[in-house]
Amino acid sequence: MSTETKPSERVTVETTLNGTEVEQTVPAGTLLSAFLRNHEYLTGTHRGCETAKCGACTVLVDGDPVKSCNMLAAQVDGATVTTVEGLADGEDLHPVQQAFWDCHGSQCGYCTPGFVTNVVALLEDNPDPSVEEIRSHLTGNICRCTGYTKIIESVQEAAARMDGDGK
Rank of each mutant, 00 (worst) to 15 (best):
C108V: 09
K53C: 11
D89E: 15
S130L: 06
L32Q: 05
N38A: 10
L31T: 09
N18W: 05
C108D: 05
F35C: 06
A99L: 02
T117D: 01
S8Q: 13
C143R: 02
V131M: 09
L32A: 11
G109H: 07
S2I: 07
T83L: 06
C57M: 01
K53T: 14
F100E: 01
V26M: 05
T15A: 15
E157S: 15
D128L: 09
V22S: 10
E132R: 08
Q98Y: 06
G114M: 11
H46F: 03
M162A: 12
T25K: 09
Q97H: 01
T3K: 14
E40Q: 15
E133F: 03
H46D: 04
Y110M: 10
G164D: 13
V22R: 06
A159F: 14
A34G: 09
E124I: 00
E132W: 02
T117V: 01
V96M: 10
D102K: 13
G55P: 03
Q107L: 12
T117R: 04
D64L: 12
Q75Y: 03
T83F: 05
R144P: 09
S68G: 09
F115Q: 00
V26D: 02
T3W: 11
I134A: 06
V116L: 02
T51W: 11
C49P: 11
R37W: 08
F115D: 08
A28L: 11
E85P: 07
E14R: 15
D163L: 12
V81D: 07
T58N: 13
S106C: 00
D163K: 14
L122I: 12
V66E: 02
G63S: 10
D128M: 08
D102P: 04
V119Y: 03
V22W: 02
T146I: 01
C57K: 05
V120C: 08
L36E: 04
A52P: 03
V61P: 08
R47F: 00
P65D: 02
L31S: 10
G105I: 01
E4L: 14
T45D: 06
T20W: 04
H137N: 15
L72A: 02
K150H: 15
A160E: 15
R37K: 13
C57Q: 03
G63C: 03
T30M: 15
T43K: 14
A73E: 06
Q156T: 10
